[in-house]
Amino acid sequence: MSATQILVFMVMAGIAAYVQTLTGFAFGLILMAAVALGEILPLRDAAVVTGLLTLVNAAVMLRNGWTEVLKRQFLLVLLSSLPSLVVGYFVLEHLADQGLVILRILLGAIIIVSSLQLIMPPKREQRLASDRSFVAFGSISGLMSGLFSTSGPPLVYHFYRQPLPLLAIRETLVAIFGVNSLIRLGVVFADGTFPDKRYWVAFLAIIPVVAGTQLARRFPPPISPQTLKKIVFILLCASGASLALPAIPAALRMAGY
């Protein structure tokens, strides 16, 4: 990584942590989009770095918030996400070796669809959803965590529909993101695919992640949350389109069209 790439990555990590703290999700989406567009890191290694930084962000946010975690929902989601997380991880490994074009289209599509939650917030239900629904959304979340360390979107959608205290929802989501990231790192170590030493400098982004998280708590932006979400939505959609659209012609050629 060049000095410019390192600087850009650290700045984007700080911005992603700032936005994550204010909006409740989007850390992985922002960071993976920046990495893929700038070709700063291979996507496989970027997912590892993003997972570690997500863990740091979660630890900072949860220093005093563990008591608010919804234990039953936390366990349901966590246990159901484990198998699909492993599946997602090995799908990424396969595509990283065989289908980088498909990987870019998939990541771009996930970024665009997930960003819709920023401007289309879920409607709150009157009754708490069944345990099976938390298991189902946990499985989808695990798959996305295994693929790109972006487990947030399906869980954010499902949890914010529930008639539960907003603080408890936020802290539960952050706890899930953190534990999923820790488990994914364990899978990476077990598989022997930790990033090469030349990419370890990316872990310096821990510093701006901690700073971004603290800044968001102490100095929120002088704009409404709705305006912030619209800005992030536009940027994410543009990033997702920039990733996916140029790769579609190559994918069609590969398919013989």
Rank of each mutant, 00 (worst) to 15 (best):
F219H: 07
P163E: 04
R44V: 12
T21F: 14
V49E: 00
L235G: 08
F203I: 02
W200H: 15
P165Q: 13
L62I: 01
N180D: 08
L118F: 15
A251S: 05
V86I: 14
G24P: 06
P225E: 08
A58E: 02
I112H: 03
I112K: 06
R127N: 11
E125Y: 10
Q226I: 11
K229G: 08
V156I: 12
P165K: 15
A247P: 01
L43D: 04
W200K: 14
Y257E: 13
A13M: 02
L164P: 04
S130G: 05
Q98A: 11
M120Y: 13
A13W: 02
D196G: 12
I169C: 05
T150G: 06
F148V: 04
L166C: 00
W200D: 12
A33G: 03
F137W: 13
Q73P: 04
L167P: 00
S181N: 04
I223A: 03
G24T: 09
L235H: 10
T227E: 02
L70T: 11
M120T: 08
Y89T: 09
V174Y: 06
V48E: 02
G51H: 12
F90E: 10
G88E: 02
G138N: 10
S145K: 05
A250N: 09
A255L: 15
S239Q: 12
A205N: 01
V91A: 05
A129S: 15
L100M: 03
K230Y: 08
S80E: 04
L128R: 14
Q226C: 00
F74W: 15
T67Q: 12
V156R: 05
F90H: 13
A33Q: 01
P154I: 14
E39I: 05
K197V: 14
G38H: 01
F194T: 11
Q162H: 07
E93N: 14
V179S: 08
S242H: 09
I234C: 08
P195N: 07
L243R: 05
G51R: 10
L52W: 01
R184S: 11
T4R: 07
V188R: 05
S224H: 02
V86W: 07
F148A: 09
L62C: 04
Q117P: 04
E93C: 15
P222D: 07
V69M: 04
L53M: 05
I110N: 03
V56K: 00
R124Y: 05
L29C: 08
S114Y: 10
R170M: 05
M254L: 14
L128A: 15
P195V: 03
K230Q: 12
Q162M: 11
L29K: 06
T150D: 04
A129Q: 13
A3T: 10
G88I: 02
L78I: 12
S139T: 12
R184V: 06
T23W: 10
S239K: 06
L204W: 00
A211T: 02
S151D: 13
L22Q: 15
V174R: 12
V11P: 01
Y160M: 03
